[in-house]
Design a protein around this nucleic acid. Structure first.
Lengths: 145, 145
DNA sequence: TCGTAAATAGAATTTATTTCTATTTAGATA
DNA sequence: TATCTAAATAGAAATAAATTCTATTTACGA
C-alpha cells in the first residue's frame, strides 16, 4: 500500500483498517470529488457488508486530519475528494464532470491583512471555491444537470 | 416600507406579500446571518400561522434574485443574511457572534486569469468566505459553541 | 498471543429540506 | 373599485442526509 498514506494515518492515530484504506483507495483512484453516498456505492462492490455510518465517520475523520478535503457544493450537499497536499485548499471545480483542479493563486495574505487592519479581527479559516467548466467541458457545450 | 427593497422585488417578479416583507425585515434588522429555522422562529412571533416551506421558498427565491446571500457554513447547515449590494460576495464571518462584515479584497481577476490561462477553463461562479473572530469576539476569548 | 481501545454493522433516529394539494391573496386589468 | 389570475401559502406528508446507539469485531502495541 501507499507508504505516505500509511504514515499519514499513523500520525492521526487512525488504524489502517481495510475499509478505511479502501475509502482512500477509491478517492485516490478517482480524480473527481464524490459524495459520501457515492463512496458507499463503490464500497459495496468491494465489501459484502458496509454501513453508511462507516463511510461518514471515516470521511469526516480523514477530512479533519487533513487527508481529505471537504468540498461544499452550492446545492447543500457535501462532497469529498482526496487531497495530496493538505496545505492547498483552493480549487477549481468543474460543475459538469466534477473534476477538481488546484489553483495556485490564493489571496490569503491580503485577506488576513485586511481583516487585521480594517476589521481588527482574526482569521481562523477561509474557503475559496471556484466553480466553472473545465477545458474539456467548455469545449463541448452541453452541460449535464 | 423600504423603497429599494420594493423595487428589487418588482424586478424579480416577486410579489410583496406580508410574509416575504417580514422575512426581509427580519434579515435587515439583524446584521447577523440566520438559519432558515431561526427565521421561522422569529416569523412565528409575528404570524399565527406560518409554514417552514414558506421560509425556505422565500429565502431561496430571494437568494436566487441576489437580494439575499446564501452563506455556506463549514458544518453543513445553510445560513442566510441580507445583502445590501448584490455585487459583493466576499465576507468575513464571525463564528462566535455570527456577525457578517464585507471584505473589499477580491482576487476574482487573478483567479479568472489563472483558470483561463493554465487550466483553459471557464469560471462561472466563485465563493469566498473567511471565518474567524471579529474585533469584539477576539478580545473576549471565550468562544460559544 | 493476548488485551484493549478503536472500528464496525445494522437498526433506529434525528434533522433538514422538499413535495404535494387545496386554499388564499397580491396586484394587474377592466 | 370589482374582478380575475397567476403567484403565494398552510399544513401534512414524504424524502434525503447525517447521526446515534449497542453489541460485536478487529488492528496492533506490549
Amino acid at each position: 500500500m501507499n507508504k505516505d498514506l500509511y504514515v499519514a494515518l499513523k500520525s492521526l492515530n487512525l488504524k489502517a483498517t481495510p475499509k478505511r484504506l479502501a475509502i482512500l483507495d477509491i478517492l485516490v483512484a478517482e480524480s473527481v470529488y464524490l459524495a459520501p453516498e457515492e463512496v458507499w456505492r463503490k464500497m459495496r462492490k468491494r465489501f459484502k457488508s458496509i454501513g453508511l455510518p462507516t463511510i461518514y465517520r471515516n470521511l469526516e475523520d480523514l477530512a479533519n486530519g487533513g487527508v481529505l478535503i471537504k468540498i461544499i457544493h452550492p446545492d447543500r450537499k457535501l462532497y469529498y475528494y482526496l487531497c495530496a497536499n493538505a496545505d492547498h485548499h483552493h480549487h477549481f471545480i468543474c460543475i459538469n464532470c466534477k473534476k477538481v483542479e488546484d489553483l495556485s493563486y490564493c489571496g490569503a495574505e491580503e485577506i488576513e491583512k485586511e481583516v487585521k487592519k480594517n476589521l481588527k479581527g482574526r482569521v481562523i479559516s477561509h474557503l475559496m471555491q471556484v466553480f466553472g467548466l473545465c477545458k474539456d467541458c467548455s469545449v463541448s457545450r452541453t452541460i449535464a444537470t
